[in-house]
Simulated assay, not measured.
Amino acid sequence: MIVKLDTSGNIIFFNEFAQHFLGFKDIKINEKIILSTIYSNTDSNERNISDFVKNLLHNPEKYDNNLSEIIKKDGVRCWIAWTNKLLLDSQGKITGILSIGHDITDQKIVEEKLLAIINFLPDATFVIDIEGKVIAWNYAIEEITGVKAENIIGMGNYEYSLALYNKREPIFIDYALRPDLDISNRYTNYKQEGNSIIGETYNTFLNPNGIYLWGKASSLFDANGNIIGAIESFRDITHLKNEKP
């Protein structure tokens, strides 16, 4: 979808695909205000859309890329990934915003279902996307690390490694994305099983007395076979290591 907004938030242009997709083919979309046309007051995550759009219009440099939930004319909600670009006149004054949107509703549904499943796994589990940003962080890993999901979701730069080992460096889950990484200095008894890697490590950050962790990391793929991220689960096996033969 291609959409142009003026500085007041009016939609001044919708391409034909956007009109068909959103169901506004037969109305003069440029006479509608964006908030009352495709946004409700809040999205399903209770984010205030009015404030969000105002921020987009007044601080567009912070929103080169963003996700938002919109409402079609028939009331169906969908998620759109937007890429935004300022429109300037010959004097460099901002005259509006050009936004290109891609429907990622199916992806969001899959992510939400995946998150619901992950949250009830007994093992500490987290997921990163292809850029290394955390997109899922379950209850079990919150408990073992003390880091809440809301404080790490969307974070990159090895924030998950910092939470687990107090170091920003590649760990098991990164190997699932990049098998060329050398992990021999951190993990032992590791082996490759298809798109997964299994191994053990000794951790003194999560417990000063030291604990043994068994983990498994796997690549995640889209419908076309492209890697889109990775998932890692691990559990404390210290009691097994300490058992006498």
Rank of each mutant, 00 (worst) to 15 (best):
V147D: 04
D222T: 13
Y187H: 01
K85P: 03
I49W: 09
N84Y: 08
L162S: 05
R178I: 06
Y165I: 09
K191F: 11
I71V: 14
F21N: 02
I33L: 08
I117K: 08
K32D: 01
K32I: 04
T238G: 04
Y202A: 05
I135K: 06
R186N: 08
R178H: 14
P170W: 09
K244M: 01
N30M: 05
V76H: 12
I227E: 10
I231S: 04
E111R: 00
K113I: 11
G199E: 03
I29Y: 04
Q91T: 12
I153Q: 05
Y175C: 10
N66T: 05
W137F: 07
R168H: 05
N151H: 12
F205W: 07
H58S: 08
H239T: 12
I109Y: 15
E16H: 14
I2A: 14
I33F: 13
D89P: 05
L115I: 15
V3N: 00
A124C: 14
A140S: 15
R235V: 11
Y160E: 09
I12V: 15
D123V: 01
N207L: 15
A223Q: 15
V134L: 02
I237S: 05
E159N: 15
G101Q: 09
N30W: 14
I152A: 01
I128C: 08
Y212Q: 02
Y212P: 02
P170N: 12
N189A: 11
L213K: 08
Y139Q: 13
T145N: 03
R186T: 09
I80P: 04
N226I: 11
K216H: 04
R186S: 11
S50M: 07
E61P: 05
D129K: 11
E159K: 06
G215D: 00
L5F: 11
T42C: 07
E200S: 14
T201I: 03
L35P: 02
L57R: 04
S90L: 15
A163C: 05
T204Q: 10
K241V: 08
D222F: 13
A223I: 11
E111V: 00
H102I: 02
K62W: 00
S218W: 02
E69V: 00
N226T: 06
G9A: 07
G156C: 04
S184W: 01
F126E: 01
D74A: 11
N203F: 00
G210H: 15
E142L: 01
S184Y: 00
F24Q: 06
S219M: 12
T95E: 14
I34K: 01
S40M: 14
N84L: 11
L35C: 10
G215K: 00
N41S: 12
E46Y: 00
A18L: 09
N189Q: 09
K216A: 00
P122N: 06
A116S: 06
N195G: 00
K108Q: 05
N65F: 12
I231V: 13
F17E: 14
E31N: 12
T83L: 12
S40I: 02
I2Q: 13
